[in-house]
Simulated assay, not measured.
Amino acid sequence: MGRLIRRGPDPGRPAERLDTEPGLRAAYAAHGAELFRFALRQLGDEGAAEEVVQEVFLRAWRRADTYDPQIASLRSWLYAIARNAVVDESRRVAARPWRRTLTDSPQESRAAPVIDAADQAVVDAWVVEEALRRIRPEHREAIVATHLRGRAYAEVAAELGIPIGTLRSRIFYGMKALRLAMDEMGVEQ
Rank of each mutant, 00 (worst) to 15 (best):
M1V: 08
G2N: 09
R3H: 14
L4Q: 11
I5P: 00
D10W: 06
P11F: 06
R13Y: 03
D19F: 07
D19P: 00
P22I: 10
L24M: 03
L24D: 00
A30D: 06
A30Q: 07
H31T: 01
G32S: 04
L35F: 05
R37Y: 10
L43A: 02
G47S: 07
A48T: 00
E51A: 00
E55M: 11
V56I: 03
L58V: 10
R62V: 15
T66V: 11
A72Q: 14
R75S: 10
S76N: 12
W77Y: 10
L78S: 04
A80L: 03
A85G: 02
V87L: 13
R91L: 11
P97R: 03
P97A: 07
W98R: 12
S105W: 13
E108V: 03
E108S: 13
A112R: 15
A112V: 05
I115D: 05
I115Y: 09
I115C: 11
Q120E: 12
Q120C: 03
A121N: 01
V123C: 05
V123T: 07
A125N: 15
V128Q: 15
V128T: 08
E129I: 04
E130H: 15
R140W: 04
E141Y: 04
V144T: 09
A145D: 12
A145G: 05
T146C: 03
R151V: 00
A154G: 06
A157Q: 07
E159T: 01
E159M: 05
G161A: 03
G161C: 02
I162Y: 11
T166S: 11
F172V: 08
A181S: 06
M182C: 09
M182P: 13
D183F: 15
M185H: 15
E188W: 15
